[in-house]
């Protein structure tokens, strides 16, 4: 059905862009609200040509991600802002299952705050990482939600890293 596919694609786009906006604003709970509590799985992966293996740098379910957010105030973090710029390139939709797959290219910038020598560097923006989101999105009951997000990085040198998910 053409119309429902169109609607699905629209919902997928909105969900992915909203996920970037919530993360950019560090509204962690609003981000979690976009995820399917029961099945959500989040991971950051890449392929390392150095060891010639796929590797995983973070994997969490909904609860695991929530505890990361809850514990942020107890940790010493580089609180520089990460800004995700995304473009959704491809959406596949399975109307039987009401599930979509989306491929999104993402560029992440870091705007320094207190990571290093704030007198010199706060306010300066640099490229932090490039990669893609590979999402599985549920479209039940007219509401899109994230069931799975794989952040597949091209960038393998991410400086001092981050306490924030990408």
């Amino acid at each position: 059905m053409g119309a429902s596919r169109e609607m699905a694609v629209q919902q997928v786009h909105e969900l992915i862009y909203e996920s970037c906006l919530t993360l950019n604003a560090e509204k962690w709970n609003d981000y979690l609200d976009l995820c399917d509590k029961a099945v959500f799985n989040y991971s950051i992966v890449n392929y390392s040509p150095e060891i010639r293996r796929d590797q995983c740098w973070m994997e969490r379910d909904y609860k695991g991600l929530k505890s990361i957010f809850d514990l942020l105030p107890k940790h010493n973090s580089d609180r520089s802002q990460l800004t995700r710029h995304a473009t959704v390139y491809r959406v596949g939709f399975d109307p039987e299952q009401n599930v979509a797959n989306a491929l999104t290219l993402v560029t992440i910038y870091r705007t320094q705050l207190d990571g290093i020598n704030s007198h010199f560097e706060s306010g300066a923006t640099s490229l932090f990482a490039v990669g893609k989101y590979m999402d599985v999105i549920g479209l039940d009951a007219g509401k899109a939600n994230l069931k799975k997000r794989v952040v597949a990085l091209d960038t393998r040198q991410v400086d001092i890293g981050s306490h924030y998910p990408l």
Binding site: W57, H75, G115, S162, H163
Partner: peptide, 25 residues
Amino acid sequence: RILDHDTIWGPFGRNLHEDLLVVQN
């Protein structure tokens, strides 16, 4: 093992980021 490793280590683990943050400052 990888899940255990990534909780504190790796660029998105809790400890490694803190160590790197300190030494550069």
